[in-house]
Design a protein around this nucleic acid. Structure first.
Lengths: 196, 196
DNA sequence: AAGTTTAGTTAGTGCTCACTCACTTGTCCA
DNA sequence: TGGACAAGTGAGTGAGCACTAACTAAACTT
């Protein structure tokens, strides 16, 4: 297998690992085991653990942005935003990407290179959403904010929690976006009318 | 000093430490140094590193909720929500609390006891916001979502980034909530009209 | 056939970390 | 005066970790 193929494979395995444990909570040994290679080879391929992590984070943001772009293809305005919302709900089903992104946010606090790639990622997503939807800053902000809430819902596993407050928080971003046919976008773009 | 006083002091010091490094990225040695005690004494006081972390997270959510309650005192409805928004902006100035909460979210993924305390925290905040504001679920959700976005903005340091997209993302949650006199609440509660 | 490059491994090394044990010091009370 | 108890420490330990050095084996080149 070529080094590049191998690298891609390792990035995939590392994504799963880092999603669970975060940067500090994941050992290169663990990543290597998942990727089916020896642990030192990781350092051949990526130089250091941090560079691997940065690569993983970059890939996650790119995949997220690509999913948005694919979803919004051929659409415009509110329809595009809605389609991207649906795409996000697809991502939540397998929350690897979102979790890695969250880990990147927290790791940004004490690491410059991670912060840089996390900023790049947000810039990318913001740009894609803006370009694809043509929506105003306020709309985009609310849309992005709801995405961040969905991340938290995913991390805490609130969808599978059978309590009122959890349902209230998770209902709209979770199942509603997921399964709701048309109401979704109005709700999240203008949650104002509320359903108490 | 009594053990209880000492415990409170250590929790404060640990909050700062964990805010920077997260759970895995912070050593008990570091916490001890900040608290001005020997490292083994931490285990006397808290039993394990994880129990200390859980205590720190619990305290952070309580302090956040208390700030909200204080801010909304005597107010009702939208005014209460707005006041709590302002209170949140005060917290962002010293982002310790928010960062610890974010670290708790990510740590929740692979640790049950952390997930439990993080869920407790969200339940607490949700309940306080709901009770104090009497707002509908949709409003509360949008409000909470904006809070999560503010967390990310704080983690990435977007306010101090002099780029268009960063300003677009951070403007409203940051300075606007902070300094805006009256427009704030309409904007975040109904960001629909947008300001493009 | 000989040399070079590429993919990959085995066997470490030094360091950090959570946690333990045995000890000391001071205080309160009989 | 002496003893129980609470606060607090110094010195360690074993495990896990990121990272390295030195090597093997196959494929490609000339």
């Amino acid at each position: 297998m070529s080094a590049d193929e191998r690298r891609a494979l390792v990035v995939r395995a590392a994504t799963t690992a880092f999603a669970e444990g975060g940067y500090e909570g994941t050992s290169t040994e663990d990543v290597a085991r998942r990727a089916g290679i020896s642990q030192p080879y990781i350092f051949r391929l990526f130089g250091s653990k941090k560079e691997l992590f940065v690569e993983v984070v970059r890939a996650c943001f790119r995949r997220t942005a690509a999913a948005f772009e694919r979803a919004a293809e051929g659409l415009e305005g509110p329809e595009a935003l809605e389609a991207m919302g649906v795409a996000y709900s697809e991502l939540v089903k397998d929350p690897e990407l979102l979790l890695v992104e969250m880990h990147a946010f927290t790791a940004s606090v004490h690491d410059d290179s991670v912060r840089e790639v996390a900023r790049d990622g947000m810039r990318l997503i913001w740009g894609v959403a803006r370009r694809a939807s043509g929506a105003g800053t306020g709309d985009l902000q609310a849309w992005l904010a709801m995405g961040m809430l969905i991340n938290v819902v995913a991390a805490l596993g609130l969808e599978e929690l059978d309590e009122g407050w959890a349902r209230d928080i998770a209902w709209m971003p979770g199942p509603c976006i997921l399964e709701g046919p048309g109401t979704t976008d109005e709700q999240r773009a203008a949650p104002h009318p509320g359903r108490s």
